[in-house]
Design a protein around this nucleic acid. Sequence first.
DNA 1: TTCGGCATCCGACAAATGTCGGATGCTCGA
DNA 2: TCGAGCATCCGACATTTGTCGGATGCCGAA
Lengths: 198, 198
Amino acid sequence: MKPQRILLVEDERDAREALARALARAGYECSAAESSERAHAILRGEQGFDAAVLDVKLGDDDRAGLKLIRPLRATGTCTAIIVITAFADLDKVKQALNDGASYLIEKPFHAAELLAVLQRVWSEAQDTSHLVERALQRAGLTTKEVEVAKLVLKGLPSAEVASLVGISDKTVRQHLSQIYAKCGVATRSEFFHYVFPS
Amino acid sequence: MKPQRILLVEDERDAREALARALARAGYECSAAESSERAHAILRGEQGFDAAVLDVKLGDDDRAGLKLIRPLRATGTCTAIIVITAFADLDKVKQALNDGASYLIEKPFHAAELLAVLQRVWSEAQDTSHLVERALQRAGLTTKEVEVAKLVLKGLPSAEVASLVGISDKTVRQHLSQIYAKCGVATRSEFFHYVFPS
DNA sequence: TTCGGCATCCGACAAATGTCGGATGCTCGA
DNA sequence: TCGAGCATCCGACATTTGTCGGATGCCGAA
């Protein structure tokens, strides 16, 4: 899957418009801002951005872009945050990393690079396999139980799981009972919520 | 919730043992390795680490710790990866960020700092609210539908959702039908899987 | 060898879930 | 003002899900 909505914050008009065009051409819906203030204004209006591309330097402020990272992370929007900068110094990169940036690209760069990074970082952020692995591991499930659990977590009904695993649908439900007990839950929904806390 | 199992990779024996003790005291189950090779060996044996704490320099190799980041990310274990280093130079920090590290701590540091960072980074990584927001936004749900959807995603049965929202349980199911239609799914499980792809 | 844990099946039942058809009232924009 | 969209409710039904009691066979550790 691809990210859909992207927040682009870049103060230089040419660069901003070029990137916005590139993003649009690649099928993204892109909201562009030229300053921190505009970015915040946009965020107040609409949420639900999948990713943000932030220039580090905005106008006078040498690291205005970095200051946007924490608020963005806090809102819970924006899964992937990419920062771009012409002058990567140690301090800025450290801050970017520790504030929660996903990637840093140095100017000058090709739009294609950004698109590639965007795609990669996004799909990594979307990946929930670690949550699944962890939860199942922690619960101490047996081999078969893990097999069943993973298929159930794919949204399949018991009958489908049964035919895929090659056992009876009754047995699948039996296993599930056992799984639920180990996880301390009682229903399929609760099990999902156990694996994906929210 | 706290992370449970931690992979600690640090070549200096004193530091390693001190950290391992501190982590154990804080209630973590900690596997320590003194080299890349040992780390890989541990990973071959057991998976399911929640977090990794990596020293950047291991033995001769100036950035052996950094080289562990990608494999760790690739395995799908390890939600949080913290790197520690005595000499943070621009190049190393850039690599750490772009390879997928979550945080960088500079030596010398107090064990308490590490514990605090671990806790923070871990809970951020656990947070799936952005997935929820994104999915619901993308589906174009109405206000009420979002309200219902969020409670359902908390694992609550329709009846509970109904009493929390203050509407009839039938109505909740009605809303859910609508929600499923918008998301292109047919059951609660599929809906979970729509929100949390895995 | 014997016993506990794992995997497998069955029948039966209560509860939860999803769907259909139909209904009312509200609000906002054309 | 008139209809579309939203929110709300109802009854009824087929399906799915979770549980209970009971059963068999296998394997590995005690």
